[in-house]
């Protein structure tokens, strides 16, 4: 009885809905799968502002946290594909998650309509101040030679510092002891105090300590140097060209978006990342703004596929190796 009523009500409403043809008619919810104030949330808020201006409706941020971001993404992926629910995914939720979460209820490459890349935050290889190695090459040798006596910090399984850290280890063929922290803050503290030897993390988290001279930076894993850390060489310059990694954030929508809605969202995001103010704010944080070749839905789809392929073997073996 109640379902019948609900269905009839819904069909009436659907008729109304069809009458209102221009999207968007009401505020759009952007699900951010991490807590307010985190790097992904900051990026989301920066792009949401110019997007709202283009779309003529407010883009409201909803923080749905949990399970390395997969709780929020799962919920958003199940929302109706009408363009009123979109989400800010990132390297973890749309790259590393399939390797780390067994019962994942979405497929990063298939359950979404990609909208476009929003921003990237480069990864920096940092070590304690007292680390003797003068450059990346000798540092890599030292880590390889030190074996389990070297302590590598990371901010919890599934975090950016974990994924990028084990990628680094597998690339250079080293097996340091992993020391786990809850979040980047405490890990950095122990790095400063010299309790642990090194870690890899997003530039926004480590830049102030590097410029303050409390920790040492060996290289930044991007093709070009970052304006926030002009003295830090790229991995290519320092002799580890294969270590190219960046924590990216991108906008997705649930699969099955109407073409016109999708086009509007893509255009809005494109304007947002070209907005000088938003650009400046992202760059100030040490982030990177997607270049033309990286922007847009097709490039994002390719990125997701390549990221899943890249992280799955690395993380699977890392999780299995670690008791």
């Amino acid at each position: 009885m109640r379902t019948a009523l609900a269905i009839s009500l819904l069909s009436v409403l659907a008729a109304f809905g069809a009458a209102a043809d221009t999207y968007p008619q009401r505020p759009i919810t952007m699900v951010v799968p991490f807590a307010a104030g985190g790097p992904t949330d900051v990026i989301a808020r920066i792009v949401a502002e110019p997007m709202s201006r283009v779309l003529g409706q407010q883009v409201v941020i909803e923080n749905v946290t949990g399970a390395g971001g997969t709780t929020g993404i799962t919920r958003a992926s199940q929302a109706s594909p009408d363009g009123y629910t979109i989400m800010m995914g990132h390297m973890g939720t749309h790259g590393a998650a399939p390797a780390l979460f067994k019962g994942l209820k979405y497929d990063p490459a298939k359950s979404f309509d990609p909208i476009g890349l929003a921003a990237g935050t480069p990864i920096v290889i940092v070590a304690k101040k007292g680390m003797a190695a003068p450059d990346l090459k000798s540092f890599v040798e030292a880590v390889k030679a030190g074996g389990a006596s070297i302590n590598q910090a990371h901010a919890g399984v599934g975090s950016v510092s974990h994924s990028t850290g084990v990628l680094f280890d597998s690339l250079i063929g080293a097996k340091p002891t992993l020391v786990v922290y809850r979040g980047t803050g405490p890990a950095l503290n122990d790095l400063m105090a010299g309790q642990v030897d090194f870690m890899t993390d997003q530039i926004v988290n480590v830049a102030p300590q590097i410029s303050g001279g409390t920790i040492k930076a060996y290289a930044i894993a991007t093709p070009e140097r970052s304006p926030s850390l002009p003295d830090v060489p790229t991995t290519k310059e320092a002799g580890l060209p294969d270590y190219q990694v960046s924590a990216w954030n991108a906008v997705f929508a649930p699969k099955g978006l109407p073409a016109d809605v999708r086009a509007k969202l893509v255009a809005a995001l494109d304007t947002a990342i070209k907005d000088p103010n938003a650009r400046k704010r992202i760059l100030d944080l040490g982030g990177t703004v997607p270049k033309d070749a990286e922007a847009g839905p097709d490039a994002l789809q390719k990125l997701v596929e390549s990221e899943v392929a890249r992280w799955t073997p690395v993380l699977r073996s890392a999780v299995e190796a670690n008791p």
Partner: peptide
């Protein structure tokens, strides 16, 4: 349901 119905009006 109400939000969807009122959408645009």
């Amino acid at each position: 349901a109400l939000i969807e119905a009122a959408s645009g009006k």
